[in-house]
Structure formats: C-alpha cells, structure tokens
Design a protein around this nucleic acid. Sequence first.
RNA 1: GGUGGGCUGGCUGAGUGGUCGAAAGCGGCGGUCUUGAAAACCGUUGAGGGGAAACCCUCCGUAGGUUCGAAUCCUACGCCCACCGCCA
Length: 431
Amino acid sequence: MLDIKAVRQDPEAVANALARKGFNFPIADFEALDARRKSADVRAQSLLAERKAASKKIGELVGQGMSIDEAKAEVTTILERIAADIDAATLEAKAVQVELDTLLHAVPNVPDDKVPQGNTEDDNIEVLKWGTPKQFDFSPKDHVDIGEAMGQLDGDSAGKITGSRFTVMSGALARLHRVLAQFMLYEHTVNHGYTELYVPFIVNSESLFGTGQLPKFAEDSFKLEGDQGYYLIPTAEVPVTNIARDRIFDDSELGDEGIKFVAHTPCFRSEAGSYGRDTRGLIRQHQFEKVELVQLVRPEQSEWALEQLTGHAEHILKKLDLPYRKVILCGGDLGFSAALTYDLEVWLPGQQAYREISSCSNFKDYQARRMQARWRNPATGKPELLNTINGSGLAVGRTLVAVLENYQQSDGSVIVPDALRPYMGGLESIR
RNA sequence: GGUGGGCUGGCUGAGUGGUCGAAAGCGGCGGUCUUGAAAACCGUUGAGGGGAAACCCUCCGUAGGUUCGAAUCCUACGCCCACCGCCA
C-alpha cells in the first residue's frame, strides 16, 4: 500500500509513476474522497469530543457526591443536541474511510527510478548474460520428450489423477527433482546465511492481503472450501513474509544485514488467464516447488539487498553451469507490489529460448505497510516500516527442465551436473 | 466433537461501569555514580490518525448491543491453553 501522505502531497507525481506500470490512478476520485473523509472525520471527532467531555463531567459531579440524575441534568442540553447527529456522523466517517481504503488497496506499488519504460516483456532490458548455450551435435529435445523417453515423466497419469497442468515423476527423475531443492537449501543456508523455515502451505486472507495477492488477484490462487477463508499458497513469499506482520522488530533482531529466510515449499496457482500458454511439460503447472529467499531489511539497505539476493539466485545457476541472462523488468511487466524486479532467465535448448526461472523483487515498504511490519529505528526511537525483498532461488521444476535440456546426451540419457552428484549418491547420469 | 480457562502496551501482567490509554515489573532511552563497564539509584518510554500549533479522535482478540459514559456488562464470532472423546 502506498503512503497516503505521499499521495496527498503530490498526486500528479504518483499518477505519473503509476502510469509507467500501466495503471491509471484516478487523481480526482482520490482527492474528492479524501476531502470527504476529512470533513466527515472532523465532524465525527468534534461530536465525540463533546460527548466525551460531557460524560466526564457527569463522572466528576458524581464523584463530588451529586446523584446521577442531577449530574445528567447538568449536561442534558449538550447531550440532547449531540445525540441526534453522533451516530450518523460516526457511520459516515467510517463508510468514507472504507471507500478510501478500498481505492488505496487496489493501487499497485510505484516503480523505482531504474525501471525502464515499456509495456511487455519485449521491453525488458538485459543486464547481463552468463555462460554460453551449448552447441549440440544432434537436435536437442525438450524436457517432455527426454523425460517420457525415460519413462519417468508421466503427464497422462497426472491427467487421470487430477487434470491438466500436473505431473507424475518417478525414479531417478523424481530423485533429481528432490535433490535440486536440497542442493539449493544447502547453498543458501550454509553459504549465504539464510535461516531455513518450514511454514504452512495454507494461509488466511490477511496474509495474502499483506503481500498484495489480495484483493485484486483472488482468481490466481486456489481457495479452500470452508468458512475459514483459507487459500493454498501461490508462493512461499506469503507465509514467510507474513512472519513480520503486526510486529515491531528490535534493531538488534535485524543483525547487520537484516533478516534472511529461505523456505522450500510447494506453490499452487490456478493459472487462470493463461489457458493457451505453456500447456506442454513442466513450465507452467498448477503445483510446483520453489526455494524462496526472503529478506526483511532496514529501508536504507534494501537497494543493496536486492542485488545481493539476486546474486544468491544466480549462484545456483552458476554452480549448475546453466547459461542464463538477467533482465530488469519494464514498468508494464512489473508485478503489483514490486518497485523493482530482476528476472533470471535460463537457456532452454528444447525451446531455443531464455525462460524465467527466478524473479527477484524489492517491494520497498509497500508490503510492510499492508502488513504493519516494522522495526524500531534507534536513531528516532520510533517504529518505522521495514523493506521486504524476495526472489526464487530457484523454481525447482523449471530448474529440472533446464538440467534435462542442457545436460541431455544423444543416447537419451542426462548427465548429472557435478554440483548435484554428492546428493545423487555419486550417480553420473540418469537414463 | 464436548467441557472449562483465557485473549490488555515491545514483553510479562494488574485492572468488573466514571480523570483508565490503562498499575507494577521486564526491556528500551536519558542521566547520576565509575578510569571504563556492570550493579544501584533518578527520570523517561504504547500504536494509528487529524491539525501550522494548542490540542483532538481512535485502539484493551473481532463485530454488534446496553448506557450519559464500556478494558470492565450482554450477544455472536475468531484464536490460544487445559482436560475428555475420536483419529493418526
């Protein structure tokens, strides 16, 4: 959520920034609503103040030994005058506040100055390329052909068990998938200083609101039956970041660089609105696994924290020797809550294309304001909003796709990357 | 599923109709003392919103209700704890 004070102060600047995200901020509506809120608020407040003073007076008079009826008679003219209006004024103030909140809750974060102009992913700007796509002396297959030829990737069974966009893996392939997540967790906990978390895979609506998936993107998540209003998590970002919700961290709890969490979880997405896209294989599933990196940091640290966190995700790709490129998302491609996002795109020989495997974002104080996630700044002694950063380190299913396609051999087998062999009991290839 | 207890500030915890935004303790901050630190002592210290300011409003799990007035009484709901039942 945006800082309403900042919006008030310079609505045009906010609207211009949001326009780069393709969002039309209704300045006139906002200002009219804000003005209504203020007048309703002032009116309700002054009536409440009068009533409070009158009630207090009764209390004082009773305390001095006057009877309650006599004391009430003393202030009866005030009470009678207020009584008629106070309920209506309070309700009006509440109603306008709800309207204003509703408007503000649906306004995305403003993009960082570094965010390039543009509407689609074609306008994203490449920051760097790492590694060289391998030249095959045969025609490289895509991961579906590789996995099905092994008899270890079974979309048909998944279709029977559940439906489309699910998969069944077996044998060495299933093991490789599991091992990828463990490799990533090891690197992030032992080498990058993250604390591993195990978290709920089901969350309440407050948590989804906190990170920005609600109220606007309800259709992207799977909602559970029942009156609790629970949802399956679309990403570990939701349960992990919400650990900070309604908390005030002591400065010492943040350490030197802020709090770093890593969690391996399944993710569930309805993929509504992407019916035709990536229908083949593991790229776009309703259920997938992800190792997620989350940092909760002091505001002045967040710019650097995003660079660092993205580096941690890149480290995994480098250790697996998978060619990738890093792009900075343009305004139109940027997510709702993000101020700045780097996407890491891995080279997939089967598609002859770079495809997203990690998305690392700085949300500044946008999520923190929605969550009331704060720290006590020793310089001011006051609670101030944290900044939140997160990114995939990495999407496990897509990493499996990348390993299969980049390490495939002409005989249909797949070499196990060096970094994974200790986790595979020394196995050199799967077939 | 049943019964009982509970939900109060950064934390622990007192408060059953009237200067209660709320005792006390812990923690934090400032100071005295000390070569320095600790201890001790003194002072200070909730959050959100409005206002140029004085100052005002809201907040004691959530939502309603009673009342001139609610942390306190009533109703519903949520959550936590304990025990019983059931299940793994």
